[in-house]
């Protein structure tokens, strides 16, 4: 069919390989910058970046559910809390960190799965309302279960100490631990998205009849997305305790869930970079607005959110990707006409 073969969108030859080359270089540069960053920056800056990575993992979990599968959840802060309390309570009882990690993420996953089984029949506002109850229940529960959670005071723990041979300060070591942890779970999600599961989640979002016709059990995949999302929330909670060595009921309030959804929208759906950018917005912008005017920090934060969404309705990462592609296309065209 000549109509198809003559498509101008056909990308082939030097352009693609040049682009792939550029992408590899960018990745190597980013890893290098990331690796040396904490050696030269203040403890505060290191904590900020560490927290960005923590929230990026939680937002990535939300993206699996919202961006990939087209569901919605206001419960992510509760799973974050389960992971955080799992590792913190374990540490209080003298468990090693890996055991707390397993416990926290496993409980988050099981709770996520149990909530998802009835919730998978719902969509839109109804699903939002059901998941809303999670943080609403989790916060008082964390306050009441004092034996495990330390009640309203929360839990102070000392985990993931820098080994002496590294010569690293606490903030630097935590930065690396959280960085490596985040990198691993990001890589796992990226692999999942590339294969049959990623395609199936997409199909559920685009059209359930389409998904069914391809042999995708729609309910099962919604439950799976919800469970994975909860596990990622739990992992983020564990990393949070690694970063700040503290967890209290105030951390898992509904506001955190809403902020994560906002972060996801700001960064852009279905984009790993978007999850990081959304988390950066959540961590950095309140600090900036607070330094401009302590009294009106939240108002200014809201204004920033509105402005970004108005300028980039699909989020920052897609807008950036679009800009980069335009520049690259222009360069390729210039190179082609020069040859």
């Amino acid at each position: 069919m000549s109509v198809v073969v003559d498509e101008p969108a056909v990308r082939d030859g030097g352009g693609t390989s040049r682009r792939r080359h550029g992408r590899t270089l960018t990745a190597v540069a980013l890893v290098l910058v990331f690796a040396v960053f904490p050696l030269f920056m203040s403890p505060f800056a290191n904590l900020q970046v560490t927290l960005i990575l923590v929230y990026a993992v939680a937002i990535l979990g939300l993206d699996i559910l919202v961006g990939w599968t087209g569901q919605v959840s206001l419960g992510q802060s509760a799973f974050f809390g389960i992971g955080a309390y799992g590792v913190a309570a374990g540490a209080v009882h003298g468990w090693p960190v890996w055991a707390g990690l397993l416990l926290g993420t496993a409980v988050a996953g099981v709770v996520g799965c149990l909530v998802a089984i009835p919730a998978a029949r719902l969509r839109g506002y109804a699903l939002g309302m059901i998941t809303l109850t999670l943080p609403v229940v989790a916060v008082p529960l964390a306050k009441r279960m004092e034996a495990v959670t330390g009640g309203a005071q929360g839990l102070n723990v000392t985990i993931v100490q820098a080994p002496a041979w590294t010569g690293l300060a606490a903030d630097q070591w935590r930065y690396y631990v959280v960085g490596v942890g985040a990198a691993i779970v990001f890589a796992l999600a990226a692999a999942l998205r590339r294969g049959r599961f990623g395609r199936a989640f997409d199909a559920v979002r685009v059209n359930e009849a389409l998904a069914t016709a391809q042999g995708v059990h729609v309910t099962r995949y919604k439950v799976l997305a919800f469970t994975l999302s909860a596990v990622y929330g739990g992992v983020a909670g564990v990393l949070y305790v690694v970063a700040v060595q503290f967890i209290s009921p105030e951390t898992l309030i509904l506001t955190l869930s809403i902020s994560m959804l906002a972060g996801l929208a700001i960064g852009g759906l279905r984009s790993l970079l978007g999850c990081v950018l959304g988390a950066a917005f959540y961590v950095v912008v309140p600090n900036l607005t607070g330094s401009v005017s302590a009294g009106q920090s939240y108002l200014l934060y809201g204004v920033c959110l509105l402005v970004v969404m108005l300028l980039m309705p699909r989020g920052v990462a897609p807008a950036l990707g679009h800009a980069v592609r335009r520049v690259a296309n222009r360069r390729e065209r210039a190179a082609a006409s020069g040859e």
């Binding site: 049959r196 395609r199 997409d202 391809q214 042999g215």
Partner: peptide
């Protein structure tokens, strides 16, 4: 590739 969903396992 989505069409091959039912033929894959894992």
């Amino acid at each position: 590739l989505l069409g091959g969903h039912s033929t894959l396992s894992g």
